[in-house]
Amino acid sequence: MIEAAMIWNEPNNKSHWDPEVDPEWRMFADTVIRAGTAIHAANPAVTRVLGGMSPIDPHWVNHMRSLGALDAVDVVAVHGFPLDWNLWSIHDWPAKIAEIEAVVPDKPVWVTEVGVGSFGAEEVQVFGVQKTAELLVGRVPNIYWYSLFDLPQAWGATTRHREAEGSSYYRHFYMGLIREDGSTKPALENYAKVAGEMGLMQWFHYEDPRLDDAVRWMKRLGTKKLRTGLSWADSFRPNALDWFDRQMEALQDFEVTVTFCFTPEHLGIQPHHTSAAREPQQFADFCASMIERYAPASAASPTLALA
């Protein structure tokens, strides 16, 4: 079931990794090395993915290589939102992929988040699905469209700098193919045409009430691959393992890339989910325990190992 494990999410973006705590990403590189080693020891068949970078930056990748982090992963991942946040054209996708391939010719490049919101006009999202598929299907091994569902307005987007974003902050709430009220957007029909070749990226919050609906929609659409997350911070909530078990059991019919991220406040250098951990081995141990639980190396087939 678990095809791959991603180590963190957008680590070169201050929304997900605090640059004041770790300005040179040395702690992050150490975290990647420890986690990659632990995941491989738990199950060497699980592909290890360097947390999808945003922005797409070959210089940052070279820095990660200089710190030894690339030796602990099998795949380098990128995220891109050229019609919403990035200052480049959607037509530049092949060039952006080539920039990273040039500095990591020894590893495949995956697009683990790509999306176009409907904030300005839903017709723009229709175009975005069509053009993204045209440019990326067949160009990279794995693509994950962000996302299936709009983010509910009451939940708030996970970002450190909403005040600086201005109106672009609100785009976070319009990235889905299905509205908060459950109605579908026009772009869903276009996604359905490529669902077998373009996976979905969907975060599920702790005890997310949308989980079962997501599974029904993905099966109806013909989606084969899903990227989601298991939060280290959430693992300290009451009944966390019960929720993780329910989530992973519900997703067992898909090829899942699971993202491990979010520092528990009490374990961070700063009390925030973006902070480097005081003891990065604890994060590595969490990653290993999740792989042992949901993708055990001893399993004859990729099924759950629920306690």
Rank of each mutant, 00 (worst) to 15 (best):
L221I: 09
V126T: 06
M1E: 04
T158E: 13
F173M: 11
D74R: 11
F173C: 10
S301H: 11
E163A: 07
A77V: 04
A195P: 05
R293Q: 05
S183F: 01
A41V: 02
L67A: 00
Q270K: 13
V109Y: 02
M6Q: 13
V129Q: 03
K185W: 07
Y294S: 00
D92H: 13
A72Q: 06
W145H: 06
A164H: 14
D285V: 02
Q252L: 02
H79R: 13
W8A: 05
M6N: 04
L135I: 05
V61C: 08
F204N: 13
N190C: 11
D253V: 01
Q202C: 05
H266I: 02
R160I: 07
D74K: 10
W203C: 14
L83G: 12
E3H: 14
V49I: 09
Q252P: 05
E279K: 03
H273N: 15
H205K: 15
A35H: 01
P209I: 05
F236I: 14
M53A: 11
R179A: 00
S298F: 11
A233D: 07
F127T: 11
L267A: 00
D253P: 02
F286H: 01
Y146F: 14
D106G: 14
G268A: 06
T223I: 04
H91Y: 15
D150S: 05
F236G: 13
K193D: 04
V258Y: 04
A157W: 01
R216S: 10
R278P: 08
P55I: 07
T223F: 04
F283H: 00
Q153P: 08
F283I: 00
V75H: 06
G229F: 10
P11A: 06
F127M: 15
A187M: 08
E180V: 03
D181K: 12
